[in-house]
Design a binder for these strands. Structure first.
Length: 261
DNA sequence: ATGACCAATAATATTGGA
């Protein structure tokens, strides 16, 4: 089974790329982020025509996540627990029945947090990460295959960006951000890409500005974190960077994990 | 060459992204 995550940066602006990529890559489950539309505006017919089920959790203009899957999910939960007042659509969970049992897949669009000195944005990011940690702790207790896939807006290590000095004071790379990410990993979650690839650099995002793609000024911020039961069945990963060179690309590329279930 | 992004919005500038 192939499970992928992709920050699409506007699903309506990117529908042709999405259809072409689904045909080329043929993932079984896809977690999308930044669909940037409400549920009823999601171009579901084009996706369903390829044989995928479509579950969305959108909002107007910004944010928004989705899960596309060849299998129909048994259950879907929308929103990250822990703050009833949070109206930003950044999280959903789907449960699937496979051989030999249940698997859980979450689509995550973790807050950016910049500017880091903003009185609201960076604390919101850290609070969101604390909620995600609590959620992961809860789900790990189930001892099931769990894939937390998405745009984490976290650069885990200095070699995961082009120039650490440029990112030193950025919300994606501040010590508190990296510390919170390590707390997640220390629950027993495995960074799938790093478990299967030592490549440095290995980026998943290149800014639209200043010819960053051409110069390979990228960062690695899209991750699949796996429970032990999922990590045990991981056979490989792929960062599908050719997609960044397509016409009218997203600034992120798909990241996929292969599993023997 | 001294250059310069993109999506969405009741929008011809602004906001948010990273």
């Amino acid at each position: 089974m192939k499970i992928a995550t992709w920050n699409i940066n506007g699903v309506r602006a990117r529908i042709e790329n999405l259809v072409a990529w689904l045909k080329q890559s043929s993932p079984d489950i896809v977690c999308l982020q930044e669909i940037k539309c409400q549920d009823d505006a999601f171009p579901r017919l084009e996706i369903e025509a390829l044989g995928y089920h479509v579950e969305t959790h959108g909002q107007k203009s910004f944010n928004g996540v989705a899960i596309l899957s060849k299998l129909k999910p048994d259950a879907v939960n929308r929103g990250l627990p822990g703050d009833e007042a949070d109206e930003q659509a950044r999280f959903m969970e789907a449960v699937f029945s496979v051989e030999p049992g249940k698997i859980r897949v979450c689509s995550i669009y973790l807050p950016n947090g910049n500017p880091a000195d903003d009185p609201v944005k960076y604390p919101y990011k850290l609070a969101w990460m604390a909620r995600l940690e609590a959620f992961a702790r809860d789900r790990l207790a189930l001892e099931e295959p769990l894939v937390l896939a998405g745009d984490y807006n976290v650069i885990p290590e200095p070699h995961d960006c082009w120039d650490p000095t440029v990112w030193a004071k950025d919300a994606l790379f501040l010590p508190q951000t990296r510390q919170a990410f390590r707390r997640l990993e220390n629950l027993g979650l495995t960074d799938a890409v790093r478990a299967t690839a030592d490549d440095v650099p290995l980026y998943t995002f290149w800014d639209y500005q200043a010819g960053s793609w051409q110069k390979n000024w990228g960062i690695r911020i899209d991750h699949l974190l796996l429970s032990p039961e999922a990590a045990d069945r991981l056979t490989g990963t792929a960062v599908e960077k050719d997609v960044r060179g397509w016409e009218k690309p997203s600034d992120h590329v798909p990241v996929a994990g292969y599993f023997n279930f």
